[in-house]
Design a protein around this nucleic acid. Structure first.
Lengths: 107, 107
DNA sequence: CTATAATATCGCAATATTGCGATATTACAA
DNA sequence: TTGTAATATCGCAATATTGCGATATTATAG
C-alpha cells in the first residue's frame, strides 16, 4: 500500500529510524555541520551556504527542530539556530547503543 | 522539482545521508537487529519475525546489502544473511565522527 | 531432466519526500 | 501604525519510498 508499517515494529526500532530519517538528506547533514561551526546561525546564511532556497532551508530546519536537536531564538528580526548539545548527545547515544549491541551479538 | 540535489553537497554529507537512509526505515532496523541475534538468517525467518511479506523483506535485504553491511551465502537452497562486522564498524565510525565533530564545535 | 523449496524481481497503487515560487507571518524601528 | 527585514507556510510538480501479489530465478534432491 505504500505506507511504512510503524506499528508492527518495536518502539526502539522506530526511534532509531526516526532519527536516521533526519540525517537521511544531505542538505540536513550540511545544515547541522554548518550550524555547528557558528554559534547561532541565520536561516538566510545557511541558505546561502548550502545553496538551497530560503523556503527549502527553512523547511529542513523545521524538520530537524522537530526532533529537538535544534533550538532557536529571536534576536532582532532574525532567528538564530543552534544545536541543543544535550539532545545531540542523546541522539549519538541511541545510535551508538544500536551499533554496539549489534556488534556484540556478532562476536 | 522534487529530487534531492546531491551534487551541491559535500561527499561526506552524502555518505552520511546514504547510510542514514538505510536506517531510516524501522523494518530495516528490525532486520539488522534480528540478523545480529542469529549467526546467519534466512529471508523466510526474518520475514516471519518482522511480520512483513517475503518480497518486502527481500527488498529491504537488498537495500541493506547494497551498502556492504550485509553479506550472504547460499547453503542448500537457502540464503544465509549475516552482518559484515568490518563494514558495520566503518559505518559506526562515520556516524561517530560526525557526532563528535559537531559536538566539539559546539563547545 | 524434473520437482521443490527458497529467494529475487516485476509491476502496481498508495503515500512520502524534495525543492521552489508565491505569499503570509513575525518582530522590530521609526 | 507603517515599513522593512527575516523567517515560515502554502500549494504545487517531480520523484522516491513502501509494501504487496504474481511471477521469475536459483540451487539442490531425486
Amino acid at each position: 500500500m505504500g505506507v511504512t508499517k510503524r506499528h508492527i515494529h518495536s518502539m526502539r526500532a522506530n526511534q532509531i529510524a526516526d532519527l536516521a530519517k533526519v540525517l537521511s538528506n544531505p542538505a540536513r547533514v550540511a545544515i547541522i555541520e554548518y550550524i555547528g561551526d557558528c554559534d547561532g546561525c541565520l536561516c538566510q546564511d545557511i541558505s546561502e551556504k548550502i545553496r538551497l532556497s530560503q523556503p527549502t532551508t527553512s523547511q529542513h530546519l523545521q524538520v530537524i527542530k522537530k526532533t529537538g536537536i535544534l533550538k532557536s531564538q529571536f534576536r532582532g528580526k532574525a532567528q538564530y539556530y543552534s544545536i541543543d548539545v544535550r539532545k545531540w548527545e542523546q541522539a549519538q547515544q541511541l545510535f551508538q547503543d544500536f551499533f554496539d549491541a549489534t556488534k556484540a551479538k556478532c562476536i
